[in-house]
Design a protein around this nucleic acid. Structure first.
Lengths: 200, 200
DNA sequence: TTTGACAGGTCAACAGCGTTTACATATACC
DNA sequence: GGTATATGTAAACGCTGTTGACCTGTCAAA
């Protein structure tokens, strides 16, 4: 038998062991990040909630940011949107996604992290993900000479809407007719994708 | 004489007094923020550079974020763009501004703060400024029923481009033909401003 | 059964942060 | 001259993420 449960499964005592501990930390971090935001939750708070020593966070995830990265890694939204339906409906899915986030839809964790998006750690992690999870797959999907420019512009519009939401609550945008707004965002996205130098 | 120089102007000893100290702190903060970014510069570092006690930062500016706010207050870019020329050229000025920032033009302080834009303090201050320095004046300028929606969308595009620049270096965007890019951004901005429910 | 190795967990400390409080000093006014 | 009031100082507070030394329980080989 290779690695039986060290604790013998006895109830009462917390489950020990590498995987169990990692999972406990991850679970607690998700719960706390969701309810309080990233910046407001300290390492010690996570450890305490997980019933685990603070040092173990760094042992298993390298740092608090590493823990966050691990949590976000399982949560790739944009690639899913890209592959999720027919190519010709992509811009509409992106627009719908954008507007729905604007209206506060999405997983509680996502929404909460949106609110903490100002944090340097989160920003750094997001930076990596924006590139690897949106711009690059989108450019690859688009193909063509200016694929990366188009993809970057799309990213700009999507990020911009998200940012305005966080920054000013986007009260005006949310108060506006949702369908009209979606149409407008859709038009913006398609304008982003239009070829340069139209053949004339 | 109301408030002669308390120090008698003697050389050697650092100049004391409310205004002098405030200015010294402001000047040092600008220098350091410019060369190292906001997050990388601690209160103690600023104070040390200014030859001033740490506590005076909080005394005169309330907090480190307050100091930043004061620095940014004198630096209202968007309102200037709005009033700076004829209304019909506004979108073009905004587009030009956006693209030039993309190419790393602008005051060193602005560029540096752009890079630190992830910091929660800076984010908070920017949030206030985005509203008061772009969305609100722009909405007021535009007038009309959906003015705030249009202004928010414009803000979204501008912020989005800025964000993509920070997030992925916008290598693709920068490599692209500048004039073409400006035209594209201009088109996006004008699409943002187009009336909803076009009369048909 | 004894011994050694080692993964897993604990604890206390580190250096840094922004901020606050109590105190000292220098200036201005009566 | 004496006193109120700006201004500046020093030291601490509580917090953060992180680290290194140490303990402990389990397993494998001798």
């Amino acid at each position: 038998m290779d690695r039986p449960d060290r604790t013998g499964g006895g109830a009462g005592a917390p489950v020990r062991g590498r995987e169990a501990t990692r999972e406990r930390i991850l679970a607690s971090a998700k719960v706390l990040f969701t309810s309080e935001g990233y910046g407001a939750v300290s390492s010690r708070k996570i450890a305490s909630h997980a019933g685990v020593n603070v040092a173990l966070i760094n042992r298993y995830f390298g740092s608090k940011a590493g823990l966050l990265t691990e949590i976000l890694r399982e949560d790739g939204v944009f690639p899913r949107l890209i592959e999720e339906g027919p190519p010709e409906g992509l811009t509409e899915r992106l627009a719908e996604h954008s507007v729905s986030r604007l209206h506060g839809e999405g997983s509680p964790l996502q929404l909460s992290l949106d609110d903490s998006a100002g944090d340097p750690d989160l920003q750094a992690v997001y930076q990596g993900r924006l590139k690897s999870a949106l711009i690059e797959p989108l450019a690859a999907y688009l193909g063509g000479r200016d694929a990366r420019v188009h993809a970057s512009l799309v990213a700009a519009v999507l990020m911009g809407v998200g940012r305005v939401r966080r920054v000013e609550g986007a009260t005006a945008l949310r108060a506006h007719d949702r369908e009209q707004l979606k149409e407008r965002v859709l038009a913006l996205l398609e304008l982003c994708l239009k070829d340069f130098d139209p053949p004339e």
